[in-house]
Design a binder for these strands. Structure first.
Lengths: 347, 347
DNA sequence: ATGAAAGCGCTAACAT
DNA sequence: ATGTTAGCGCTTTCAT
């Protein structure tokens, strides 16, 4: 009765399926992966038998033999931030759907981040592709990854030749400023991300540029001293808004570069007995889940959608290396809430 | 000159290191992994050479040969929720520290979840262990995983024989209720998670039990009609609080089982022109990042610490299968803010 | 369309 | 303390 090496306790191996189907392991491998040169009848029979034996290829074996891992890695600066966890959620869903595994790694600072990208040996053969979220990858680093067979896709940054999902940050700044200007504000504070944050310095710069261009267009002066920087979280916003409010001529409105910073700004206001909307108008960017709770006006972005789009672009390139490096411009939308009321003294 | 099989473009293999160090591959393997029976001098030399060649073991090869993957998987119901993403952040940090990879999978509903656990074939050989966050695993499922060599560790649920990180949910409910009672409230609403949510039905039940026991101890009646259930997010809290407020005799205070539910409750209040603290007192559970922004009194739990602890327990058991199945009781702390002011009419 | 067989790079059992 | 060698389970030429 031929060799019978099937293990009892263990799982079925390709060899067991091959024996049960009376074909070679090569045929099983081809049949199950939908490769050409397998008779349709054979493919069906093998698939049925594999199914009945509950066979799953061992990923480690398949990786070793094929040199690809069917795994992608999402790299984010912070895992627990609303923005990043929402991007991850969007990306992971797409990833799972496609049968890929999804590794996630948080890089606390720029050094960790560069170490990761500079020594692709850590990644090589371990992951087929990287989704970088707000992680700047120089062209050189990207190219070195590419040479080692690691595909790239980014959210919030752009590396020429690789797919990217972006928002128009300049426009975001302009939309926010225009909303405030339209409400009659002439003295507007800017709660900015740190310009020297190496992690994603471009975002603060661009949103600020948009902000400034809106002021220009409205014939308003851009006052450097009304710009306060901090980290992108609640603390950063709280401190920045604190500085603005403690001026002798505090602004009548402020644009915070993220909703979390705006939350911090709210805190700074209430510490001083001031109320958002009534005393100072406030607008953020993101549309954080909690923004509607505090009535924060914001520039909404589709965060989960961005993660999903970046992952989709990556998987497409994994499927065929010469798939185009799509660049997605993710939509923005002004959501008006109570922190930017219509001016009472108008009309 | 011996055989020279070293590839030029590719990465170094163990064989290349062995050749360069004039030892066998076995010795390299032992030396690099810190196994016994390697002369210290040899270990040092091999390590230096491996370092200089920038050698990293191919994880797939090592997995295939060793049968272990040095990968753990974190399973959560939702990836983007504050609670879950914070647990993940805590766990991932520990994981990275230990040189393990960290897979993350979100299971939308109980079916997906059971499918995952019931067909460990997906997991087997793919992951060494599972950190289940608020995912109930029956003893049978846990045992079947164990037989297949997948270790288990849980957060928020407990499976006998496996490490777990828990809070005392009964106590959380009691602490919250006692705080409100101490403030003079006698008519208290309960904004509860769904009792029939199969995902983690035990939590609502236990917090409710603690809530009830505090009422009992204070000689107050427990009014079923003051319990409103909803999902654990903002929506759920908003609807539940809405129902409570629309009663003819609305409660003077409410206990929401999560801060996000409490955020929803705040929304319900402001929709009706009421103010938290002034009109209705409110307490939550978690100490969400944003809670201090809205001045929410809450029962703080150390969420990232829970993820870290669960991961640590898992890694310990991975290191030696007979490490104890630690059960951690994670601390709780009342944080009083403005939604539960001292009663003005007292003293 | 199918099969045979040579690896993939490492670990672990056994030998020395 | 070190070396030899047989796999781990799959993919992929190369035959047929």
């Amino acid at each position: 009765m031929g060799t019978n090496k099937q293990r009892d306790g263990g799982r079925a191996r390709i060899e067991d399926v091959a024996a049960a189907a009376n074909v070679s392991v090569a045929t099983v491998s081809r049949a199950l992966r939908g490769l050409p040169n397998v008779a349709e009848s054979t493919r069906l029979r093998v698939a049925a038998i594999a199914e009945s034996m509950d066979y799953r290829p061992d990923p480690a074996a398949s990786r070793l033999a094929a040199g690809r891992s069917r795994t992608v890695t999402i790299v984010v600066p912070h895992l627990s931030t609303w923005y990043f966890s929402t991007v991850i959620a969007g990306a992971e869903a797409v990833c799972a759907e496609a049968g890929y595994e999804c590794l996630v790694v948080g890089v606390g600072n720029i050094d960790e981040c560069n170490r990761l990208l500079d020594e692709p040996f850590h990644l090589e053969r371990r992951t087929d592709g990287l989704v970088l979220v707000n992680i700047p990858a120089t062209e050189a680093r990207a190219e070195s990854l590419g040479r080692r067979g690691v595909m790239l896709s980014t959210v919030g940054t752009r590396t020429p030749g690789h797919p990217a999902v972006l928002i128009d940050d300049v426009r975001a700044g302009r939309m926010a400023a225009n909303h405030l200007i339209g409400l009659g504000h002439r003295h507007i504070g800017l709660i900015s991300g740190q310009r020297d944050d190496p992690m994603n310095f471009a975002v603060p710069r661009m949103r600020r540029e948009g902000f400034r261009s809106a002021l220009d267009a409205a014939g308003l002066a851009f006052d450097e001293t009304l710009v306060q920087s901090g980290n992108f979280g609640i603390d950063g916003g709280q401190e920045a808004m604190g500085s603005l409010l403690d001026r002798s001529d505090p602004p009548t409105a402020a644009f915070a570069m993220s909703d979390e910073m705006a939350f911090g700004a709210l805190l700074a206001l209430s510490e001083r007995g001031l109320r958002a909307g009534a005393d100072v108008s406030l607008i953020g960017v993101d549309d954080h889940d909690v923004s509607r709770v505090v009535g924060l006006t914001t520039i909404r972005q589709r965060v989960a959608g961005q993660g999903a789009a970046a992952m989709r672009a990556l998987l497409m390139r994994l499927a065929s290396a010469d798939a185009p490096a799509i660049v997605v411009d993710s939509p923005l939308e002004l959501v008006v809430r109570s922190t930017t009321p219509r001016p009472l003294d108008t009309r």
